[in-house]
C-alpha cells in the first residue's frame, strides 16, 4: 500500500484507476496512568508493524492514510471525525475502506463507521523483538491479508 509520502502519493496520482482501497490505522493514546501510557505506546508500535506488512503486500492497490490518533476511552465521540476523513476523499472516493485498530471500543460503533472495521485483540505488553511477538504479528497479518483479499473478491 502506498504510504502518505511524496513519492508514493505521486504514484497514486498517476495510477488512480488501479488504487481503490483506503487503510486507516486507528491508534488510541493513553495520556495518564503510567502503565496504560506505556501500554498504549506498545500498541502504537504494534499497529505500525501491521501497517508495514499490509503495505508491502498490497502497495499497488491500497493507500495507507496517516495514523489516526485519539485520546483513549471515547471512541464513539471520534466516529464523526473518522467518517469525515473517509468522506474527504471526494475527487475519487475509495471503493473499499478499512479501519484497523486494537481498540475494542470501536466495535460498539461499528455500524456507524463508513468503513470496514478490522478489529483484533492485540497484545497488552510485550517486546517487539521477541519471537513470540513476531509470530503473533505474522499470524494475525496473514488473517488481515485474507480478509482484504476476500473483500475484493465479492
Amino acid at each position: 500500500m502506498m504510504k502518505w509520502a511524496k513519492k508514493d502519493l505521486e504514484q497514486f496520482v498517476k495510477e488512480k484507476e488501479y488504487i481503490d482501497t483506503l487503510f486507516i490505522p486507528l491508534i488510541p493514546i493513553h495520556t495518564s496512568i503510567d502503565e496504560k501510557m506505556t501500554g498504549s505506546g506498545f500498541q502504537a508500535e504494534l499497529t505500525n508493524l501491521f501497517s508495514r506488512i499490509i503495505e508491502e503486500q498490497f502497495r499497488g492497490r491500497i493507500v495507507l492514510a496517516p495514523d489516526y490518533y485519539y485520546i483513549a476511552g471515547n471512541a464513539e465521540a471520534e466516529v464523526d471525525r473518522v467518517n469525515n476523513w473517509i468522506d474527504s476523499f471526494t475527487e475519487k472516493p475509495f471503493s473499499y475502506v478499512f479501519l484497523f485498530s486494537f481498540d475494542r471500543n470501536w466495535r460498539k460503533s461499528e455500524s456507524d463507521l463508513r468503513g470496514e472495521l478490522l478489529w483484533f485483540p492485540g497484545l497488552r505488553h510485550g517486546d517487539l523483538q521477541s519471537t513470540e511477538t513476531q509470530s503473533f504479528v505474522k499470524e494475525q497479518a496473514k488473517e488481515i491479508v485474507e480478509i482484504i483479499k476476500e473483500s475484493w473478491q465479492t
Binding site: 504514484q11 488504487i19 503486500q57 498490497f58 502497495r59 492497490r61
Partner: peptide, 22 residues
C-alpha cells in the same frame, strides 16, 4: 504496481504466480 505475488495462490492458476491486487 509493486504488490507481492504468491505462488499458486489462485485456484484457477495452480502453476503460476498470482498478484492479489489486480
Amino acid at each position: 504496481l509493486g504488490c507481492t505475488v504468491d505462488w499458486a495462490s489462485n485456484e484457477e492458476y495452480p502453476k503460476q504466480f498470482f498478484c492479489p491486487c489486480h
